[in-house]
Protein backbone atom coordinates (compact mmCIF):
# COMPACT_ATOMS: atom_id res chain seq x y z
CA UNK A 1 0.00 0.00 0.00
CA UNK A 2 0.95 3.58 -0.57
CA UNK A 3 0.49 4.49 3.06
CA UNK A 4 3.78 6.33 3.27
CA UNK A 5 3.39 8.39 0.11
CA UNK A 6 2.52 12.05 0.36
CA UNK A 7 -1.12 11.94 -0.85
CA UNK A 8 -3.30 10.63 1.93
CA UNK A 9 -3.91 6.91 1.93
CA UNK A 10 -7.39 5.74 1.03
CA UNK A 11 -7.46 3.12 3.78
CA UNK A 12 -6.85 5.66 6.51
CA UNK A 13 -9.90 7.56 7.75
CA UNK A 14 -10.14 11.00 6.21
CA UNK A 15 -10.92 14.01 8.33
CA UNK A 16 -14.00 15.07 6.43
CA UNK A 17 -16.62 12.79 7.95
CA UNK A 18 -18.84 15.65 9.03
CA UNK A 19 -19.26 17.20 5.59
CA UNK A 20 -19.17 13.97 3.53
CA UNK A 21 -22.27 13.12 1.53
CA UNK A 22 -20.92 9.64 0.77
CA UNK A 23 -18.69 7.60 3.06
CA UNK A 24 -17.67 4.07 2.09
CA UNK A 25 -15.84 1.95 4.67
CA UNK A 26 -14.12 -1.43 4.22
CA UNK A 27 -16.38 -2.53 1.41
CA UNK A 28 -15.89 -6.10 0.15
CA UNK A 29 -17.47 -7.88 -2.77
CA UNK A 30 -16.02 -10.96 -4.43
CA UNK A 31 -17.31 -12.60 -7.61
CA UNK A 32 -15.97 -16.14 -7.39
CA UNK A 33 -12.23 -15.62 -7.20
CA UNK A 34 -12.35 -12.03 -8.45
CA UNK A 35 -12.01 -9.45 -5.68
CA UNK A 36 -13.93 -6.62 -7.35
CA UNK A 37 -14.15 -4.67 -4.08
CA UNK A 38 -11.41 -5.64 -1.68
CA UNK A 39 -11.75 -3.27 1.22
CA UNK A 40 -12.76 -0.01 -0.47
CA UNK A 41 -12.74 3.08 1.76
CA UNK A 42 -13.46 6.52 0.36
CA UNK A 43 -15.48 9.68 0.88
CA UNK A 44 -17.12 12.30 -1.28
CA UNK A 45 -17.67 15.71 0.30
CA UNK A 46 -20.72 17.89 -0.14
CA UNK A 47 -20.53 19.95 -3.34
CA UNK A 48 -17.39 18.07 -4.27
CA UNK A 49 -16.63 16.65 -7.70
CA UNK A 50 -14.50 13.58 -7.06
CA UNK A 51 -12.86 11.73 -9.93
CA UNK A 52 -12.44 7.96 -9.74
CA UNK A 53 -9.62 6.61 -11.90
CA UNK A 54 -7.87 3.30 -12.23
CA UNK A 55 -7.02 0.63 -14.79
CA UNK A 56 -9.70 -1.52 -16.41
CA UNK A 57 -10.91 -4.14 -13.96
CA UNK A 58 -9.82 -2.16 -10.90
CA UNK A 59 -13.38 -2.21 -9.52
CA UNK A 60 -14.65 1.28 -10.34
CA UNK A 61 -17.91 0.25 -11.96
CA UNK A 62 -18.48 -2.43 -9.32
CA UNK A 63 -18.10 0.25 -6.66
CA UNK A 64 -20.83 2.26 -8.43
CA UNK A 65 -23.09 -0.77 -8.48
CA UNK A 66 -22.43 -1.41 -4.79
CA UNK A 67 -23.17 2.19 -3.81
CA UNK A 68 -26.28 2.33 -6.01
CA UNK A 69 -27.58 -0.97 -4.65
CA UNK A 70 -27.53 -2.89 -7.95
CA UNK A 71 -24.99 -5.28 -6.39
CA UNK A 72 -25.05 -6.16 -2.69
CA UNK A 73 -21.76 -6.00 -0.74
CA UNK A 74 -20.35 -9.03 1.10
CA UNK A 75 -19.44 -6.72 3.98
CA UNK A 76 -18.70 -3.10 4.78
CA UNK A 77 -20.58 0.15 5.35
CA UNK A 78 -21.90 2.78 2.96
CA UNK A 79 -23.24 5.97 4.46
CA UNK A 80 -25.12 8.29 2.11
CA UNK A 81 -26.47 11.64 3.32
CA UNK A 82 -26.75 10.30 6.86
CA UNK A 83 -28.38 6.97 5.90
CA UNK A 84 -26.71 3.57 6.10
CA UNK A 85 -27.47 2.12 2.66
CA UNK A 86 -25.27 -0.99 2.32
CA UNK A 87 -27.50 -3.84 1.14
CA UNK A 88 -30.52 -1.60 0.60
CA UNK A 89 -32.59 -2.03 -2.60
CA UNK A 90 -31.56 0.17 -5.52
CA UNK A 91 -34.88 2.01 -5.75
CA UNK A 92 -34.79 2.93 -2.06
CA UNK A 93 -31.27 4.32 -2.36
CA UNK A 94 -32.36 6.28 -5.44
CA UNK A 95 -35.27 7.77 -3.48
CA UNK A 96 -32.80 9.07 -0.87
CA UNK A 97 -31.31 11.26 -3.60
CA UNK A 98 -28.71 9.18 -5.41
CA UNK A 99 -28.61 9.12 -9.21
CA UNK A 100 -26.29 7.26 -11.55
CA UNK A 101 -25.52 6.68 -15.20
CA UNK A 102 -24.56 3.33 -16.67
CA UNK A 103 -21.32 2.65 -18.50
CA UNK A 104 -23.30 1.27 -21.45
CA UNK A 105 -26.22 3.68 -22.03
CA UNK A 106 -29.31 2.12 -20.43
CA UNK A 107 -31.97 3.57 -22.70
CA UNK A 108 -35.68 2.93 -22.48
CA UNK A 109 -35.52 1.93 -26.14
CA UNK A 110 -39.21 1.95 -27.03
CA UNK A 111 -39.95 5.26 -25.37
CA UNK A 112 -39.32 8.66 -26.90
CA UNK A 113 -36.53 10.93 -25.68
CA UNK A 114 -39.10 13.04 -23.82
CA UNK A 115 -40.66 9.95 -22.24
CA UNK A 116 -37.21 8.79 -21.14
CA UNK A 117 -36.77 12.07 -19.28
CA UNK A 118 -40.27 11.94 -17.79
CA UNK A 119 -39.76 8.34 -16.65
CA UNK A 120 -36.77 9.53 -14.62
CA UNK A 121 -39.12 11.84 -12.72
CA UNK A 122 -42.06 9.41 -12.50
CA UNK A 123 -41.12 8.37 -8.98
CA UNK A 124 -41.20 11.21 -6.50
CA UNK A 125 -40.26 14.33 -8.43
CA UNK A 126 -43.31 14.57 -10.68
CA UNK A 127 -44.35 18.14 -9.94
CA UNK A 128 -43.30 20.32 -12.87
CA UNK A 129 -41.70 17.32 -14.60
CA UNK A 130 -42.93 18.33 -18.06
CA UNK A 131 -41.39 21.79 -17.72
CA UNK A 132 -38.16 20.30 -16.41
CA UNK A 133 -38.07 17.83 -19.31
CA UNK A 134 -38.40 20.75 -21.74
CA UNK A 135 -35.59 22.61 -19.93
CA UNK A 136 -33.38 19.52 -19.98
CA UNK A 137 -34.01 19.00 -23.70
CA UNK A 138 -32.94 22.60 -24.29
CA UNK A 139 -29.93 22.35 -21.97
CA UNK A 140 -28.62 19.23 -23.73
CA UNK A 141 -29.66 20.39 -27.23
CA UNK A 142 -31.84 17.31 -27.68
CA UNK A 143 -34.91 19.25 -28.85
CA UNK A 144 -34.69 18.13 -32.51
CA UNK A 145 -34.97 14.46 -31.47
CA UNK A 146 -37.41 14.95 -28.57
CA UNK A 147 -40.06 12.72 -30.15
CA UNK A 148 -37.68 10.09 -31.57
CA UNK A 149 -37.41 6.68 -30.01
CA UNK A 150 -34.35 6.38 -27.79
CA UNK A 151 -33.10 3.35 -29.76
CA UNK A 152 -32.89 5.54 -32.88
CA UNK A 153 -30.41 7.98 -31.31
CA UNK A 154 -26.71 8.01 -32.10
CA UNK A 155 -24.28 6.76 -29.47
CA UNK A 156 -23.39 10.30 -28.42
CA UNK A 157 -27.02 11.35 -28.17
CA UNK A 158 -27.71 8.31 -26.01
CA UNK A 159 -24.92 9.41 -23.67
CA UNK A 160 -26.55 12.83 -23.49
CA UNK A 161 -29.96 11.33 -22.76
CA UNK A 162 -28.44 9.09 -20.09
CA UNK A 163 -27.04 12.23 -18.51
CA UNK A 164 -30.31 14.11 -18.99
CA UNK A 165 -32.26 11.51 -17.03
CA UNK A 166 -29.87 11.99 -14.12
CA UNK A 167 -30.46 15.75 -14.31
CA UNK A 168 -34.22 15.11 -14.13
CA UNK A 169 -33.81 13.17 -10.89
CA UNK A 170 -33.03 16.19 -8.67
CA UNK A 171 -30.44 14.15 -6.80
CA UNK A 172 -27.96 15.27 -4.15
CA UNK A 173 -25.20 12.91 -5.37
CA UNK A 174 -24.67 11.88 -8.98
CA UNK A 175 -22.46 8.98 -10.06
CA UNK A 176 -21.28 9.36 -13.66
CA UNK A 177 -19.73 6.32 -15.34
CA UNK A 178 -17.61 7.45 -18.31
CA UNK A 179 -20.31 9.81 -19.40
CA UNK A 180 -18.15 11.52 -22.03
CA UNK A 181 -16.34 8.43 -23.34
CA UNK A 182 -16.46 8.28 -27.12
CA UNK A 183 -18.65 11.33 -27.60
CA UNK A 184 -18.12 14.22 -29.96
CA UNK A 185 -16.22 17.21 -28.43
CA UNK A 186 -19.33 19.40 -28.84
CA UNK A 187 -21.44 17.00 -26.83
CA UNK A 188 -18.70 16.66 -24.23
CA UNK A 189 -18.70 20.42 -23.84
CA UNK A 190 -22.46 20.42 -23.26
CA UNK A 191 -22.11 17.78 -20.55
CA UNK A 192 -19.23 19.58 -18.80
CA UNK A 193 -21.18 22.84 -18.73
CA UNK A 194 -24.17 21.05 -17.28
CA UNK A 195 -22.04 19.46 -14.55
CA UNK A 196 -20.68 22.88 -13.59
CA UNK A 197 -24.21 24.30 -13.43
CA UNK A 198 -25.45 21.43 -11.26
CA UNK A 199 -22.55 21.81 -8.86
CA UNK A 200 -23.52 25.44 -8.37
CA UNK A 201 -26.89 24.11 -7.20
CA UNK A 202 -25.08 22.11 -4.50
CA UNK A 203 -24.99 18.69 -6.12
CA UNK A 204 -22.00 16.41 -5.48
CA UNK A 205 -20.44 14.14 -8.09
CA UNK A 206 -18.40 10.96 -8.20
CA UNK A 207 -17.10 10.53 -11.73
CA UNK A 208 -15.43 7.54 -13.38
CA UNK A 209 -13.29 8.89 -16.19
CA UNK A 210 -10.44 7.73 -18.37
CA UNK A 211 -9.85 11.07 -20.04
CA UNK A 212 -7.18 12.76 -17.91
CA UNK A 213 -7.86 16.16 -19.47
CA UNK A 214 -11.42 16.01 -18.26
CA UNK A 215 -10.33 14.76 -14.85
CA UNK A 216 -7.93 17.67 -14.54
CA UNK A 217 -10.51 20.28 -15.63
CA UNK A 218 -13.54 19.08 -13.74
CA UNK A 219 -12.57 17.22 -10.59
CA UNK A 220 -11.69 18.79 -7.23
CA UNK A 221 -10.01 15.61 -6.06
CA UNK A 222 -8.86 12.34 -7.61
CA UNK A 223 -9.36 8.89 -6.09
CA UNK A 224 -7.20 6.14 -7.60
CA UNK A 225 -8.35 2.51 -7.49
CA UNK A 226 -6.43 -0.63 -8.31
CA UNK A 227 -7.29 -4.29 -7.72
CA UNK A 228 -10.46 -3.52 -5.78
CA UNK A 229 -8.89 -0.99 -3.39
CA UNK A 230 -8.34 2.72 -3.16
CA UNK A 231 -4.62 3.23 -3.70
CA UNK A 232 -4.50 6.92 -3.00
CA UNK A 233 -6.39 10.16 -3.35
CA UNK A 234 -5.53 13.82 -3.62
CA UNK A 235 -5.30 16.79 -5.94
CA UNK A 236 -4.68 16.07 -9.63
CA UNK A 237 -1.14 17.53 -9.58
CA UNK A 238 -0.15 15.50 -6.51
CA UNK A 239 -1.46 12.33 -8.09
CA UNK A 240 0.38 12.94 -11.35
CA UNK A 241 3.61 13.59 -9.45
CA UNK A 242 3.25 10.26 -7.69
CA UNK A 243 5.17 7.87 -9.93
CA UNK A 244 3.65 4.76 -8.36
CA UNK A 245 0.18 5.92 -9.32
CA UNK A 246 1.19 6.82 -12.82
CA UNK A 247 2.66 3.33 -13.24
CA UNK A 248 -0.53 1.77 -11.98
CA UNK A 249 -2.78 3.88 -14.07
CA UNK A 250 -0.91 4.70 -17.22
CA UNK A 251 1.55 1.82 -17.16
CA UNK A 252 4.55 4.09 -17.58
CA UNK A 253 7.10 5.40 -15.06
CA UNK A 254 7.67 9.13 -14.92
Amino acid sequence: MASTSSPQSGSAPENRASDAILAVRDLYRHFGGIKAANGVTLEVGRREIAGLIGPNGSGKSTLFSLVAGTVKPDSGQISFDGHEIAGMNAHRIARLGLARTFQIPAMFDNMTVTENLLAAAAQGHWHGAKERAAETLALLKLEPVAENRASDLSGGQQKLLEFGRVVMRQASLILLDEVTAGVHPNIRKIILEAIARLRERGISFLIIEHDMEMVRNVCDRIIVMDAGRVVTSGAFEDIVRNSEVMQTYLGRPQ
Binding site: N89, H91, A94, R95, E115, L118
Partner: peptide, 23 residues
Protein backbone atom coordinates in the same frame (compact mmCIF):
# COMPACT_ATOMS: atom_id res chain seq x y z
CA UNK B 1 -46.81 8.18 -14.41
CA UNK B 2 -47.67 4.56 -13.70
CA UNK B 3 -47.47 3.77 -17.43
CA UNK B 4 -44.07 5.44 -17.66
CA UNK B 5 -42.82 3.28 -14.79
CA UNK B 6 -44.16 0.09 -16.38
CA UNK B 7 -42.62 0.83 -19.79
CA UNK B 8 -39.35 1.91 -18.18
CA UNK B 9 -38.97 -1.40 -16.36
CA UNK B 10 -39.83 -3.28 -19.55
CA UNK B 11 -37.05 -1.55 -21.47
CA UNK B 12 -34.37 -1.54 -18.77
CA UNK B 13 -35.12 -2.85 -15.32
CA UNK B 14 -31.86 -1.83 -13.65
CA UNK B 15 -32.15 1.73 -14.99
CA UNK B 16 -35.75 1.94 -13.78
CA UNK B 17 -34.64 0.84 -10.29
CA UNK B 18 -31.87 3.44 -10.38
CA UNK B 19 -34.60 6.06 -10.85
CA UNK B 20 -36.36 5.05 -7.67
CA UNK B 21 -38.98 2.84 -9.31
CA UNK B 22 -39.89 -0.19 -7.20
CA UNK B 23 -39.97 -2.52 -10.18
Amino acid sequence: RFGLKVKALRDHEAAAEAMGINT
